[in-house]
């Protein structure tokens, strides 16, 4: 019999409780202590609604953008061999590794009206930095690896023989991609999309520099939490945080559900 069950599980649960569960429970209890009418009043406050809506829709658009580009990057990395492929493949994880504040100031300098890219956009009359478009750009940067890294392993597992079979049966290449390859990676694409979306809703560091942070217009929900804290408005901060937690958990549950469905249907994750 392998020893150490009691002590390892005990330590795990105590540590999990102290560092994660008790602090989170404290947040939930605090917001529950406000009472329904107060919670409702803050949750429906126009500034709260605008901030959360902004965080949700910019995160959604960014995740949508990442789907085609993420699938393209994964496809190119898995199927083709070209000089610099390994380097680029490693670079896909840059948004994971680069501290968000560094990404934030770099993207801002890049897309500011006098920046390398921003100056170009300015000529076309597009303002990126300090607008919701800037937020979408930062969130796309943050979300890309989630889609690529979820789709990539599944693409590597695609059996080339299935494609050959499709071709033998008279399918054109486009038909094979659309009817054989895409359906088999679809669950991974949806999972990657959901992971990028979930991460982007709560993202702060890479967004706060480029956003402009104008209340009702370009003020994201995590920033509103910080502003409420600085005003010593704990009820406000707690309510926004609780709403965001509810959104995150709903997404988490749907991700798990998608993965469970996929396992049932295809026999693997």
């Amino acid at each position: 019999m392998i020893p150490g069950f009691g002590i390892s599980l005990g330590f795990t649960i105590v540590y999990l409780g102290l560092i994660v569960l008790i602090p989170l429970a404290g947040l939930v209890l605090r917001s529950a202590g406000l009472g329904w009418s107060e919670l409702y009043r803050i949750a429906t406050d126009l500034r709260t609604v605008n901030a959360i809506w902004l965080s949700v829709w910019t995160a959604f658009i960014a995740a949508i953008i990442n789907v085609p580009f993420g699938v393209l990057v994964a496809w190119v990395m898995v199927r083709y061999r070209f000089p610099g492929r390994r380097l680029l493949d490693a670079a896909v994880d840059l948004p994971f590794a680069l501290p968000t504040a560094v990404a934030g100031i770099a993207l801002t300098a890049l897309y500011a009206p006098n920046g390398w890219v921003g100056a170009y956009l300015e000529e076309w009359g597009i303002k990126a930095a300090y607008t919701p478009l800037g937020i979408v750009i930062a969130l796309t940067f943050i979300g890309l690896p989630f889609v690529v890294r979820t789709v990539q392993p599944l693409m590597e597992d695609i059996d080339k023989e299935v494609e050959e079979a499709a071709a033998t049966l008279g399918a054109g290449r486009f038909q094979t991609v659309r009817r054989v390859i895409l359906p088999s990676i679809l669950p991974a694409v949806i999972t990657g999309f959901a992971l990028a979306f979930a991460r982007a809703i709560g993202e702060y560091g890479s967004v706060v520099f480029i956003a402009g942070n104008i209340p009702y217009v370009s003020e994201i929900a995590p920033l509103l939490i910080i502003i409420r804290l600085e005003e010593y408005n704990y009820a406000g901060a707690t309510t926004v945080a609780t709403l965001m937690l509810m959104i995150s958990f709903a997404l988490l549950i749907s991700i798990n559900w998608i993965q469970a469905m996929t396992r049932r249907r295809y026999g693997n994750g």
Partner: peptide
């Protein structure tokens, strides 16, 4: 913790 916004990960300690 991966599905909690970083700002909330700080906020919980302020509340405690």
């Amino acid at each position: 913790p991966f599905s909690v916004s970083p700002v909330i990960s700080g906020l919980v300690w302020v509340l405690l």
